[in-house]
């Protein structure tokens, strides 16, 4: 596989850091090398949040993604404006079209629009928005196995919140379906 360099961005509270961590854990469980680097600072709920995840079969030198992202997840508009220029030609941009009406104007990147909030709400839990996006992302990039992401989430939720797994599985599957339909 190629090295996947993914930037995940949105606002605080959208589960951006968790998405990155699930992706990183899935990569580890798939036997790959991985680094997860968060933006940190005077962050707050509603402020911007982003993290960089690098997944590779080889040891990872710099954990920083410096204008060479192979994929980008944007959950809100300011993130799209900020990070789309950092994607390499041929890279993927996954857009949460529930909150972003604008289209990706750059050429040489493949934009995939996923109405994450709407799908999550349809499934009855707005908190699953990020898992919808994860489903779409894994379907498009294939950088980790879908079961690994769901396994990482199951582990993260633990026994106490195990009842949330069915909903999240459905959210993940709907995200993947949406990506397939969008690229058909």
């Amino acid at each position: 596989m190629r090295t996947e360099k993914c930037i995940l961005a949105g606002f605080g509270g959208q589960g951006i850091m968790l998405m990155g961590q699930l992706l990183a854990q899935a990569a580890l469980d798939d036997g790959l090398e991985v680094s997860w680097l968060p933006s940190y600072g005077p962050e707050m709920r509603g402020g911007t949040a982003n993290c960089s995840v690098i997944i590779s079969p080889e040891p990872i030198p710099s954990p920083v993604i410096a204008h060479d992202a192979t994929s980008l997840i944007v959950m809100n508009l300011p993130s799209m404006e900020k990070f789309v220029p950092d994607v390499v030609p041929g890279g993927f941009v996954l857009v949460n079209s529930s909150l972003i009406e604008e289209k990706v104007t750059r050429s040489h990147v493949e934009a995939i629009y996923v109405p994450c909030n709407e799908i999550a709400q349809e499934l009855g839990n707005a908190k699953m928005t990020n898992m919808v996006m994860m489903g779409a992302f894994v379907e498009v990039t294939k950088c980790v196995r879908p079961e690994s992401v769901l396994g990482a989430l199951e582990h993260k939720l633990g026994e106490r919140k195990a009842h949330l797994m069915d909903g999240n599985r459905a959210a993940f599957a709907r995200g993947a379906e949406c990506a397939v339909a969008a690229r058909a």
């Binding site: 991985v34 680094s35 997860w36 680097l37 968060p38 940190y40 990872i60």
Partner: peptide, 10 residues
């Protein structure tokens, strides 16, 4: 440094 403190790796 801050990067090493904040990042995650196996």
């Amino acid at each position: 440094d801050g990067m090493l403190g904040q990042m995650m790796e196996p």
